[in-house]
Design a protein around this nucleic acid. Structure first.
Lengths: 114, 114
DNA sequence: CCACATACCTATTATTGATAGGTATTAGAG
DNA sequence: CTCTAATACCTATCAATAATAGGTATGTGG
């Protein structure tokens, strides 16, 4: 069927995660719920998406992990590094450019001649 | 270097092409320029992106090709099918949902508790 | 005791945009 | 007449990564 379900999502998980972590430290499971809630149900990223993304971001030094105990259970909190803040800025502006470009085409007035 | 250049672009070429073809028939080379111009330089999709996309869309019956001669040279014009119009509507609303979701997170007020 | 929520993880698949080529024709510059 | 640039089409390959579908372990409530 080639049902394309992943439309428009490339780079979005990274942007969402960095954006949420910019406000406060969070652990993976918390991020999964936060993404669903804060996006008003627009996104529902599974753990299988979020955890690998976190590991990739950590490897790129965009976020930093700190294990912390909570009620006898270990949670891995992630915080943005300064490199991560820079990256978030880049992603945000790229996102704005893409949004603007798409809007320009969708609402475009005239089109070039044949 | 793992320089990720393709951020936020998944599905965008399809959306742009369908959107432009919804207004008027166009041929591949023309689309390449139109995407650059109409998006205000936000996108600059190479021919190696546009042509395969057109072939894929044609195979899915979302667009239809008509060869036409222009000054002794053959151009392949593409037009939306009704299926293509439906698809464009779906993509547009998906795009709106994604945009809204990202905006909600980027401008989000409060975040869930730990 | 069992089910569920919490909290973490990985392997695999599939899609597809980007890159880097290639062909052929026509127009214009020198 | 030649050479370049623009037009107009094409394909093969790569690389990135979101989605799916699993898996482990602990704590809580009925």
């Amino acid at each position: 069927m080639t049902k394309t379900k992943a439309t428009f999502m490339s780079g979005v998980p990274e942007l969402l995660i960095l954006s949420l972590l910019a406000r406060e430290e969070m652990y993976g499971y918390q991020l999964v719920r936060a993404i669903r809630v804060v996006s008003n149900e627009a996104f529902s990223l599974a753990e299988g998406v979020v955890y690998p993304a976190l590991h990739a971001l950590e490897e790129k030094r965009l976020i930093k992990a700190k294990e912390r105990e909570h009620e006898g259970r270990i949670r891995i909190y992630y915080a943005l590094t300064s490199k991560g803040k820079t990256r978030l800025g880049e992603l945000t502006s790229t996102w704005a450019r893409v949004c603007g470009g798409v809007a320009a085409v969708l609402n475009g007035e005239g089109v070039a001649h044949g």
